[in-house]
């Protein structure tokens, strides 16, 4: 039964991704869609940490930015091939996450929020300050992404890369959740001591998922750098971290499709709101507050539950 829901979901997503461009009136829409897809991939990773394992991170934009800068710096300054740079960035970010995860994930609730927030802000400030390496507030240019002589260029090609990556990410996430490792992660969320007494090393799993979600962020960051061509420290700001968490929570914690939906909504929203530019912050704030008040479980789980209830009633 679960198996079926998963295949249906994945197939539906593939079809939507494949057909969506037909509705784009101009290439600018590709740009918006690319950002939405990238954010969605990142949020699928972040959801493993926040939604499934129940550990908050208010600093994940920092890992995203580190991935982006690693790619830009390595390819530009040292002519490292983009794919190698992406992998190097992911390994470095994974190693950093691994080192800080152990002390950080001993913390709970607001203390964990504080610590991750601190990590994010420190990364942001370093990117801003070490201008000799990062270009400081002006940022860095990044070149096109080439693999084996094939160049990904233009928002149209990035759309297919982003779409393919999202399908892959969702598939991996759905697999993981329904596996021994995924159940251990969810058990950590449910009751740490309950998990420990049946043999789950909760520290190990918290560290593992923190590293996995950081690597997701780093990889997406690398691709983002190549796609936009210019990155600035702002991509690692506290506000960005908050935005990412909001995407996950808005779409629905502990729901892979929820994370995707949340990411897409919040990525598209600013473009819908450009007509009331001055009100953007007010509207975003209101949306954050009202979804959390009226649907604390997030959009997708809430809607699914209503549908199921209606079907049961019918």
């Amino acid at each position: 039964m679960q198996m079926k829901a998963r295949t249906t979901g994945l197939a539906a997503m593939a079809i939507i991704i494949a057909l969506l461009p037909i509705t784009f009136p101009n290439p600018y829409y590709y740009d918006i869609a690319d950002t939405a897809l990238f954010n969605a991939v990142l949020c699928v990773g972040l959801n493993l940490l926040i939604g499934y394992t129940g550990q908050i991170s208010l600093g994940h934009a920092g890992f995203f930015a580190l991935g982006a800068y690693a790619s830009a710096i390595l390819t530009l300054r040292w002519q490292v091939p983009p794919l190698a740079a992406l992998l190097a960035g992911a390994v470095a970010v994974g190693a950093l996450a691994f080192v800080i995860a152990r002390p950080i994930l001993r913390l709970k609730g607001h203390y964990l929020a504080m610590a991750t927030l601190g990590i994010g802000i420190i990364i942001y400030i370093v990117l801003n300050t070490e201008g000799w390496l990062t270009g400081g507030p002006d940022g860095l240019m990044a070149d096109n992404f080439t693999v084996l002589g094939w160049k990904i260029k233009g928002d149209g090609s990035w759309y297919w890369v982003g779409g393919g990556l999202l399908l892959l990410a969702v598939w991996l996430s759905l697999n993981l959740i329904d596996s021994p490792v995924g159940r251990a992660l969810r058990a950590v969320h449910g009751s740490e001591v309950g998990a420990e007494v049946v043999g789950v090393n909760t520290t190990h799993y918290k560290v593992l998922v923190f590293v996995v979600s950081a690597v997701f962020a780093s990889v997406v960051g690398s691709l983002y750098a190549h796609k936009t061509g210019l990155i600035t420290p702002g991509i690692g700001s506290f506000f960005r971290s908050v935005e990412l968490v909001t995407m996950v929570v808005l779409g629905g914690m502990a729901s892979t499709f929820g994370a995707v939906v949340g990411a897409i909504i919040l990525s598209v929203l600013p473009h819908v709101l450009t007509t009331f530019e001055d009100y953007e912050a007010v509207v975003l704030g209101l949306i954050m507050m009202s979804t959390m008040i009226f649907m604390p479980k997030g959009l997708v789980p809430t809607v699914m539950r209503r549908l199921r209830r209606r079907r049961a009633a019918a």
Binding site: V245, M253, A281, I287, M288, M289, M292
Partner: peptide, 16 residues
């Protein structure tokens, strides 16, 4: 997490 998002939302709203 939910309450954190709410108060962060409030801060963004007040700033706006």
């Amino acid at each position: 997490v939910t309450i954190i998002i709410i108060t962060i939302g409030a801060s963004i709203f007040l700033r706006g």
